[in-house]
Design a protein around this nucleic acid. Structure first.
Lengths: 241, 241
DNA sequence: ATAAAATTGTGACAAAAGTCACACCCGTGT
DNA sequence: ACACGGGTGTGACTTTTGTCACAATTTTAT
């Protein structure tokens, strides 16, 4: 977890590609090809063959897992500068989730085959990639803990902190989440109903922990949230949505 | 998910190192040093500096996450032939969980520093390692889904299937889980109380889905379990505990 | 073999979360 | 200006899961 201070300077600095060196970054740019996508379109579906990685040049992408009953679980939200996709561990490996453009976006598509050749040649680049993978795994693991251990209230508080880290902009009042989320979306991030989310948020508002500014969430007392979900001061890079 | 058939031949074949080539395997053996550990001793704690990987030569290791209130959540169970540990993504990275020897065991300890040199030199080995990391991440992700989406009953059914894959031995009656687990332990794997686990298991027994053989669980109707947790036929290698 | 310790099983009740129903609010397009 | 649609807020009720208490059974240690 971070301090509000770190956030205030550059609200959108939480890219998962910060881990890469300039050289790696350039090599990646060289093998990716650009693909513009419209809001709502799927980049891939659960069970498609996983042979590509995606870099977000512009826009937002939502990674979801959906159940037969039509419930949707939001696993990650990625934004400009993020890299995502699955590293296939064998031939014909499949994705295990869906990727949807949350708004009109521009992506850089990287073929696993091309990347593998590059990694084969450049050992140091492979080591960097492993760090990226480790980072992604740690994000998943800490989220797992947060969503399982302290009930829906704990899960929502953790999610608010992660949203603050990913989309937050600090000011004298607190941290403003510079992106709107419906209660249904928040519910889908923690596996709860919109009604439950609504009740928890109302309660947090009455306790003056959060407030609203033009329908965006303003976090006034992040310490309270950290307390509820037993925040463990994990590094900022993994405390994201 | 697998078929019972695959299991019957070699119940303990679900090593996460199957992914490695013989050459990689040998190189790994060369840089690891042996460490015997007694049942109950901790290999590392949550927040220790994460600079080692561990290979299990013999025994069992339990990976847990514990809460201040004393609750314990079991993240993974590893056995002979498994490799585990965290790939530090930056200097001074910390583990985010505990590792305890579940019985007297012998480990091969690998210093991240040594491994990194090896990967730097051997691009193909790095690519294999990335496959291992991807595999581990997928295990976490699918478990995440199973524990979140279909209630405690779904979570337990998924866990029984994973136990069958990891410790199962097939016979004419069904799949016998060749390791004892207390209700408390099963509860800790799914974030439920032992009482809830007990009630769900009693119910499954009355429905003739499971039974007991000398206090070990015998799975008689794995299709029923798969149905409850909406099994998606993911590959056997990731359907483990 | 037997006592102690750990684990299981179960009822009664409490708390957490989901479901359903419906009123209301608010931005947008005609 | 107003109707519409998506989102919010909330009460009443149900289902799921946890809590507590205690007896019964199984395992382990002496």
């Amino acid at each position: 977890m971070n301090t509000a201070m770190q956030q205030s300077e550059s609200p959108y600095s939480l890219k998962n590609t910060n881990i890469f060196s300039a050289e790696t970054y350039t090599k990646l740019q060289d093998i990716m090809y650009e693909q513009p996508v419209e809001e709502g379109s799927y980049l891939f579906w659960d069970s498609d063959v996983a042979d590509k990685l995606y870099y977000i040049k512009k826009g937002h992408v939502r990674i979801t897992k959906s159940s037969d009953e039509g419930k949707e679980f939001i696993l990650y939200l990625f934004q400009e500068g993020d890299l995502f996709g699955e590293w296939a561990s064998y031939e014909e490996a499949r994705y295990s989730y869906n990727a949807v453009a949350a708004e009109d976006s521009v992506l850089g598509v990287i073929q696993q085959r091309d990347l593998e050749i590059l990694l084969w040649q450049h050992g140091e680049m492979a080591v960097e990639f492993m760090k990226w993978m480790g980072l992604m795994h740690r994000i998943t693991q800490t989220k797992f803990r947060d969503l399982m251990m302290y009930g829906k209230t704990g899960a929502l508080c953790s999610t608010l902190i992660r949203l603050a880290n990913t989309y937050g902009s600090s000011n004298t009042e607190g941290i403003l989440v510079t992106h709107r989320f419906t209660n249904t979306e928040l519910g889908d991030m923690i596996g709860a109903t919109r009604e439950s989310v609504n009740r928890i948020l109302s309660d947090l508002k009455s306790k003056k922990v959060i407030d609203y500014r033009d329908s965006n969430i303003l976090i006034k007392d992040i310490e309270y949230l950290r307390d509820i979900c037993r925040c463990e001061d994990c590094p900022l890079s993994i405390c994201r949505i």
